[in-house]
Structure formats: C-alpha cells, structure tokens
Simulated scan of single mutants.
Amino acid sequence: MARMHTRRRGSSGSDRPAADEPPEWSDVDEDAIEERVVELAEDGHSSSVIGQKLRDEGVQGTPVPDVKLATGKKITEILEENDADPEFPEDLRNLMERAVRLREHMDENPGDHQNKRALQNTQSKIRRMVDYYRGDEIDQDFTYSYDTAVELLD
C-alpha cells in the first residue's frame, strides 16, 4: 500500500513469530506484570514505552517479551481497568507533539518550504485522527488548533 502523502510505497516490517503462550524462560506472575504496567504509567510513560521497558528491563529482573501473551490483556486494557489510561490516545498525542515542533521550527525559519509542507501534512493527519476518535476517546466538541495542542502537551 502506498504512503499517505507521497507516491512511494512503505517498507514492510518483520512479523512477530506466531505464539500461543509465553516462552518458558519468562514465568512472571500476571499480577506482578499488571502492577509494573500501572507503576510505569503513573511515572508518565506511554503504552509503547511501557512495552519496551517490560521487554528490556522486565519485572523483578525477568524480561516479559509479550504482555498480551503473559496476561491475556493488552497494555492499554490493563491501563483502562486501573484508571491509568492517558486522556488522549498515544498516536494523536505524538502527532500533536510533532506539529508543535514543526510550528516552532517554522516560526524560526519561515523560508523552509519542505517543513511547511510537512506541517500541513501532519495537521491534516491530526484532523482526520480527531474525527476518528471524536466521541469515544476525546470530547465531541474538540477541534485541533496549535494553541490547544500546546496547552494539552504542557
């Protein structure tokens, strides 16, 4: 499938091996994993960073290669159950951070036409994503603007 704002195709990534149960060497208790997920979320980490930390650092010194295989729930489901989920979805928040960075760059470098186009594309993605999440994850009357993005990210 082609990329959204170019005529090029995307590069395919590698697939995880199909597995039905966690590996034998990773025998961490489900409750310990859930406690660590909530603890990392309270420290301000996003769900993708939480997954990386569990993979690299693990729980009590034992790595957790896949939280869903170990607990039967995704990281976002664990966060929702424990009322530790973020107010905005992670992908929307990342796009807003990118748009704010690009806007600050454009204020300093008004002649940078490539990044002006990148800012337009990013804002377009944000508006489409807001329409997707409107009503479920975010308020019905939310509209994106640079000022609201800066306010939400602070």
Rank of each mutant, 00 (worst) to 15 (best):
E137S: 14
P89L: 00
V130Q: 04
T143H: 12
R128H: 09
V130S: 08
Q140P: 02
R128V: 10
M96P: 01
T148K: 11
V150T: 08
T71L: 02
D107N: 14
M96I: 06
L92E: 03
L102Q: 10
L95M: 15
S124P: 02
G111Q: 10
E97V: 11
V150I: 14
D139E: 13
D83G: 05
D136L: 09
M129D: 06
G111Y: 10
I75L: 00
Q140V: 13
H105C: 00
E90T: 15
V130W: 00
L79S: 00
V100S: 07
E108Y: 07
E81C: 05
L152G: 03
D141Q: 14
E104Y: 10
L79P: 01
D83S: 12
E137L: 10
V100M: 07
E81N: 12
A118W: 00
D154H: 09
L79A: 00
I78F: 03
T148Y: 10
K74E: 10
Y146H: 14
A70H: 05
Q114P: 04
L92M: 15
D141R: 08
E81L: 08
R127T: 07
L119T: 09
R98K: 08
D136S: 14
H113V: 15
A84G: 01
D141G: 03
M129Q: 13
E90Y: 02
R117I: 15
G135Q: 09
A70V: 02
D112I: 05
T143P: 02
Y133H: 15
T71A: 00
V150Y: 00
S145H: 12
E80N: 08
A99E: 01
E87H: 06
H105E: 04
V130E: 00
Q123R: 14
Y133P: 02
G135A: 11
K125F: 06
E81P: 04
E90M: 07
I78C: 01
N115T: 11
H105V: 03
R103D: 15
Q140F: 13
R134N: 06
E90V: 12
I78R: 02
E77G: 01
E97Y: 06
E108F: 05
E108A: 15
S124A: 13
Y133D: 06
L153G: 01
D141W: 13
I138L: 12
R103C: 09
Y146V: 13
Y144M: 13
D141I: 09
Y132I: 08
R98F: 02
D154V: 03
G135K: 10
R128L: 10
L119H: 06
V150H: 00
R93L: 04
A118D: 11
T143Q: 13
T148Q: 12
E80Y: 13
R101E: 12
M106G: 04
N82R: 05
L152N: 14
D83H: 11
V130G: 09
Q123E: 14
R103F: 13
M106R: 10
E137Y: 11
Y132N: 12
P86K: 07
V130K: 04
L102D: 09
D107G: 05
T148G: 01
N115L: 03
A118G: 02
V130A: 07
F88T: 08
P110G: 12
A84L: 03
A118S: 12
N109T: 14
Q120R: 12
R103A: 15
L102W: 11
Y144Q: 12
F142L: 14
R98D: 08
R93I: 04
A99H: 01
G135L: 04
L152K: 12
N115M: 05
D154N: 14
D147Y: 09
R103Q: 15
T76Y: 02
I126Y: 03
G111S: 13
D83R: 06
M96N: 01
